[in-house]
């Protein structure tokens, strides 16, 4: 099975606690720019929540020139040792992000830390049939 993160847009208030939680959990620093989930303000009452949802398209895998992005055990993953931060994946898909220094790409790893800290219970890790 493939695990993926989902977000209930009705519940999400845009507090971005998920962003700080993600950066601390995955990168060990308090820096929302290093989060793998981002909440942008799009319009007066509209938020834009972006994170990798393990889609079936795999554009990121297709465009990655170094083979850093691949399918491993049913999950799309980035091998940081192979990523040179070229940014092609982030340009192909707005759910992947580059670190501020553009050293490497960042993608949700379904660790579930943000699910636990979301005050609105808007986030959830779900499972679907294994990606191929």
């Amino acid at each position: 099975m493939t695990k993926y993160l989902t977000l209930d847009t009705e519940r999400c208030t845009g507090c971005r606690i998920c962003e700080s939680t993600c950066a601390i959990t995955t990168e060990g620093v308090l820096n929302r720019a290093k989060s793998r989930i981002h909440i942008y303000r799009k319009d007066v009452l509209i938020l834009n929540q972006l994170f990798c949802d393990q889609c079936d398209e795999h554009l990121c895998i297709d465009v990655c020139p170094t083979g850093a992005i691949s399918l491993k055990n049913c999950q799309v993953r980035i091998d940081r040792s192979l990523c040179d931060g070229c940014g092609k994946c982030a340009r192909a898909c707005n759910k992947i992000f580059l670190t501020p220094e553009e050293h490497f790409a960042l993608m949700c790893i379904q660790c579930g830390a943000c699910v636990k800290t979301c005050p609105e219970n808007a986030l959830e890790i779900k499972e679907k049939e294994c990606l191929k």
Binding site: T13, G14, C15, I17, S20, V44, L45
Partner: peptide, 26 residues
């Protein structure tokens, strides 16, 4: 109320987004 919004890092989310007759705002 068309949307409930929050300031950064706030678990209370007191801001109520008004949405009616084309008027939209917090």
């Amino acid at each position: 109320i068309g949307k409930i919004l929050s300031c950064g890092e706030c678990p209370v989310a007191c801001s109520k987004g008004y949405s009616r007759h084309g008027v939209q705002m917090e």
